Simulated scan of single mutants.
Amino acid sequence: MRKYIFSVLIALLSLPVIAQQQQSQAKAVLDRTAEAFRKAGGVKADFTVKAVTNGLTEGSENGTIQLKGEKFVLKTTDMVTWFDGKTQWSYVVKNDEVNVSNPTQEELQQINPYTFLYMYQKGFSYKLGTTKTFRGKAVWEVILTAKDKKQELERVTLFVTKDTYEPLYILLQQRGQQTRNEITVTSYQPRQNYADSVFTFDRKQYPSAEIIDLR
């Protein structure tokens, strides 16, 4: 009995060390992923996003995102969103209107899943998961959890290739919601040369669109 108690005590005392090691390993993966992204220059990624509730897919769509640092342009069937690092323009196809805003970091997290490359550095704890392969590739699984219980985005699960540190899969879980968004990267093209103008709304391309300034 005493031997059992000591075994349990040793295991409990070692948990903080194991957790610290896991967090250190997870941070190393995130750091290398962020560094690989910075070195990639401009990036173009094709993706599929699914809304899943209780294991059932409620809807899915395909899209493309072009990135350079914090700047991005995101294109789906229904919407095109540009962000130049400060201002965001969202063109809604069916309404032929553009909403202009200066989004918060939390709002950007809901639009651009690649913000994990910056947001993990504050406000999130992280640890390694157990998934080893995804779509035939060896991956690191990293789970990020928001420290602030009031933050809308509660958890991010990320699969990153072990050889090139490119994101393959991103799972976004909003706080208090059963539905989660699963993003699968189907194509990833680094070293793209983008002018800054790519990430701003061009009025000439949408001459009839109504501009709604929400700033």
Score class of each variant (00 low, 15 high):
F199A: 02
Q177L: 14
R215C: 02
Q66Y: 06
G55C: 05
L172P: 11
V160Q: 07
P207F: 10
E141L: 04
N99H: 13
K86R: 09
I5F: 12
G63S: 04
G55S: 11
R180F: 15
T157C: 12
K127N: 14
S197I: 12
T184F: 11
V98G: 04
Y4W: 15
K71A: 14
T33F: 01
T200E: 13
V49M: 02
F116A: 03
T81C: 09
G176K: 11
E152A: 15
V52W: 13
T130D: 11
P190G: 02
T184M: 13
K86M: 14
S208I: 07
A11C: 08
S7C: 13
L12E: 00
I18G: 01
D46M: 06
Y188I: 01
S197E: 15
F124V: 07
E141N: 08
Q21I: 12
N193F: 09
V8P: 05
T33P: 08
V156E: 10
N62M: 08
P207L: 10
E97R: 08
T145Q: 05
K147R: 11
Q173Y: 13
N54D: 15
F37R: 02
P190W: 03
G59K: 00
K132Y: 00
L153H: 09
Y194K: 06
D31T: 13
S187C: 01
Y118F: 14
T157A: 11
R191Q: 15
Y206H: 07
I211G: 06
P207E: 05
V198N: 11
D46G: 04
K71R: 14
G41D: 10
K27N: 14
T76W: 05
T48E: 11
